[in-house]
Amino acid sequence: MESTLSPMRRGRVLITAKSVAGSPQALKLIEQAGHEVMVKDPPLPFDEQWLIDQAREVDALVLAMEPVTSRLLDAVSRLKVIARPGVGYDTVDLEAASRRGVLVTVASGTNDQSVADFTFGLLLQATRAIAIAADSVRQGRWDRVTGTEAWGKTLAIVGLGRIGKAVAKRARGFDMRVLAVSRNTDDAFAREQGITFVSLEEALREADFVSLHAPLTPDTQDLINTRTLAWFKPGAYLINTSRGGLVDEQALAEAVRGGHLAGAAVDVLKAQGAGSQSPLINVPGIVVTPHMATFTRESMDRVALSVARSVIAVLQGQRPEHIVNPAALEAAGL
């Protein structure tokens, strides 16, 4: 049987992800491989029909957080690859993509350091209110804020993948005790970095800071909820640079308002974008940033080039790196 991923003379690549669309080097790489690049700005709020209409005659999709549903996949018969410029893929109906032989790839290993830097930036902002104090000076005041030291405290990392490991390495510079909750235990790394693997309940009860780095799955949906928030050490802080769906936002807002948690800092929400009605926004003690942890020049260059290489590989009939649905390979004839 002829592979559905046989090399093509000219493929069509639809890009809505700004991190890739803004990389001349990545766009040039795709074009030099002989493929047509179409850069589009999706409407806000998201309109699935718009994406279906744009994607009907394309071979590759490079999307940001737009959901890829079974309905969309039914409508795009030429589609061969969905390349995500990040490490999350919870917005894609993976089972439907696999049935249709559509490969889904991520940009693993490209944004670890940027997200880890940002995680500690959020941690320090949460504890020291740096932006609030700087804003008071900007407004002609001189409001000093008494904060909490990070030095020597206990940090719990939930999800010890690439980003979690990068955060753990930074914690050593703060002389922190590091606990980890992870399905996959890298014992050699844990010994090297002085990390102790514990249960989620033990981590939350002992940590001064809890940093989330787990993928969003049915098992981790609302992992931080009313029940697990009660396990938190009084006065602790929650940091989330992973996925908004890991947190019951209303429960977190109430935990901070009620004083059980000293604060929280999140870069991700369940409903993202301008005009979000998240209950975490404008809560005193909760810092919310617009999903920008990966936004460094270095990281965005790596991400964009990784995406471009994945798209080119698939359109040349080759297996790309970082496939998240290997079950699609058989349906695709590979």
Rank of each mutant, 00 (worst) to 15 (best):
V210R: 07
N325T: 03
L305W: 06
L123F: 03
Q125N: 14
G245T: 01
F120H: 02
S23M: 01
V37L: 14
G258C: 12
R138H: 10
S70G: 12
G259F: 11
F232P: 10
S242A: 15
A126C: 12
Q250F: 06
G152I: 13
R172K: 15
I286D: 05
F295S: 06
A126T: 01
V288S: 11
K18A: 15
K80R: 15
P7A: 15
T110K: 05
A207R: 08
T294R: 04
A304V: 00
N225H: 07
V68A: 08
I82K: 04
T69I: 02
R302G: 00
P215L: 09
A21L: 08
A133Q: 08
L212I: 11
T146S: 12
D47Y: 10
L44M: 11
V314N: 01
I15A: 03
V81L: 01
W151P: 04
K153P: 07
I15R: 02
R170W: 10
T228H: 06
R183M: 09
R9S: 12
Q318M: 12
I286H: 02
V145R: 14
V115R: 02
T294L: 01
D208E: 13
G161S: 10
W50Y: 09
A60Q: 02
W50M: 10
A171L: 09
V104P: 05
V283T: 10
